[in-house]
Simulated assay, not measured.
Amino acid sequence: MSQENERRYMDEQSKRYMLVLNSHFAAYRDKYQRGGDFRIYSDLLREPLPAGTAAITVPRP
């Protein structure tokens, strides 16, 4: 995994988390013409990735 992708992950309490930003969501919407509104909450929500999940590279615009 590249160093840039490695910075998007965080390991905590034996779980791996991935950073997802609004820009990632906007790029997804532009590329696939799908997706609704992006909601922002003040609390951080961490969703664990299933074991063996492949890295996802989201290109920067």
Rank of each mutant, 00 (worst) to 15 (best):
A26Y: 10
Q13K: 11
D30A: 09
Q3D: 15
G52L: 04
A54P: 03
A26L: 15
D30T: 04
R60H: 00
R39E: 09
R60S: 13
D11Q: 07
I40P: 01
T53R: 15
T53P: 02
L49R: 09
M10R: 12
I40C: 00
M10K: 15
K15A: 06
Y17R: 04
D43T: 13
A26S: 14
D11W: 01
R29M: 09
L19F: 15
Q13H: 03
N5S: 04
D11H: 01
S2P: 06
L21M: 07
R16Y: 00
S14I: 02
E6F: 07
Y17H: 08
G35W: 02
P50C: 03
M18L: 10
D11G: 10
D43W: 12
S42M: 06
P48F: 02
R29A: 06
Y9F: 05
D37P: 00
A55W: 02
P50K: 12
L45T: 01
M18F: 06
R16T: 14
Q33M: 08
L44S: 14
R34C: 10
D43F: 05
I40W: 11
L49C: 07
Q13R: 12
A54F: 13
A55V: 08
Q33R: 09
A51V: 12
R29C: 14
A55H: 06
P61K: 14
Y17W: 05
R60E: 08
P59T: 08
P50N: 06
Y32Q: 08
R34P: 05
P48L: 08
H24T: 04
V20Q: 07
M10Y: 14
E4D: 05
E6N: 14
M10F: 13
L49A: 11
R16K: 11
E6W: 09
A51Y: 12
D43N: 15
M1S: 14
Q13F: 02
T57M: 09
M10T: 11
M1Q: 09
S2M: 00
R8I: 04
Y9D: 05
A51R: 08
E12V: 06
D43L: 05
Q3V: 09
A27M: 03
N5Y: 12
F25M: 01
Q13L: 00
E4H: 14
R60P: 10
V58W: 05
P48W: 11
I56F: 03
E6G: 13
E6M: 13
I40F: 08
K15S: 01
Y17G: 02
R39A: 11
F25S: 00
Q13I: 10
G52T: 04
V58I: 14
Q13S: 10
E4A: 15
A26H: 08
E4N: 09
Q33I: 15
G52C: 07
Y9C: 07
D43P: 04
N5L: 12
R16D: 01
R29N: 01
I40N: 04
V20Y: 07
S14F: 12
R34T: 01
S23F: 09
L45C: 10
R39W: 00
K15F: 00
K15G: 00
R29G: 05
R34S: 03
P50I: 09
E47M: 08
L44M: 08
F25G: 00
A54M: 10
Q3Y: 02
P48V: 08
L49N: 04
Q3E: 11
E4Y: 10
I40V: 12
K15L: 01
M18W: 13
Y17F: 15
